[in-house]
């Protein structure tokens, strides 16, 4: 499959997984959106979560992982650890946070292909820090503050 075709396929997959934008008004609601996404994701998927501090990225991952059978109390922010691994019903779940990564080369050195091209399902917070390494089949979601306690979650096209 050509790169262009893979990207088109990823766009189609993103629409299949997440067709319409959602708004949430609490952490619990953000987690509920995650629970709704969970059954549509498969091992090997890479889900990139774009969004500012406090936009709900970790809460969304918590919702997805809980729906896949992970004890939600195990799911916390991996900012310091960079990668946290959980075991879900469908296999390994890699919760990655690139916040502390200054240069994609560092993530390359970390053995990124074990995660992005492995058997597990990957979630990537702060994916813009490792944009060049994201595989063509990456599913992209954007989380934004929408005033008050509200957050908007929507599919996103790959940056050009």
């Amino acid at each position: 499959m050509t790169l262009q075709r893979e990207e088109d396929a990823a766009r189609d997959r993103t629409s299949a997984v997440f067709s319409r934008p959602r708004e949430t008004a609490s952490e619990a609601e953000t987690q509920a959106v995650g629970a709704e996404l969970a059954p549509r994701l498969s091992p090997g998927d890479v889900v990139a979560l774009y969004g500012d501090l406090g936009a709900g990225k970790t809460q969304l991952v918590k919702g997805i992982c809980a729906a896949l059978g992970v004890d939600p109390t195990l799911v916390s922010s991996p900012t310091f650890t960079i990668v946290q691994e959980y075991t879900g019903r469908t296999g390994p779940l890699y919760h990655i946070d690139a916040y502390r990564i200054a240069d994609p080369a560092e993530f390359f050195e970390l053995g990124y292909e074990e995660y992005f091209y492995g058997e597990g399902l990957c979630f990537v917070e702060w994916p813009e820090r490792v944009e060049a390494l994201l595989p063509p089949h990456t599913l992209r979601l954007r989380l934004t503050h929408a005033g008050g306690d509200r957050r908007r979650i929507e599919p996103m096209a790959p940056p050009r």
């Binding site: 960079i82 916040y99 502390r100 990564i101 200054a102 240069d103 560092e106 993530f107 050195e109 970390l110 053995g111």
Partner: peptide, 15 residues
């Protein structure tokens, strides 16, 4: 330590 608000770890297992 760099001026962009995060650690710049040379996280490489190679290091």
């Amino acid at each position: 330590h760099a001026g962009f608000g995060g650690v710049v770890p040379e996280l490489a297992s190679r290091a």
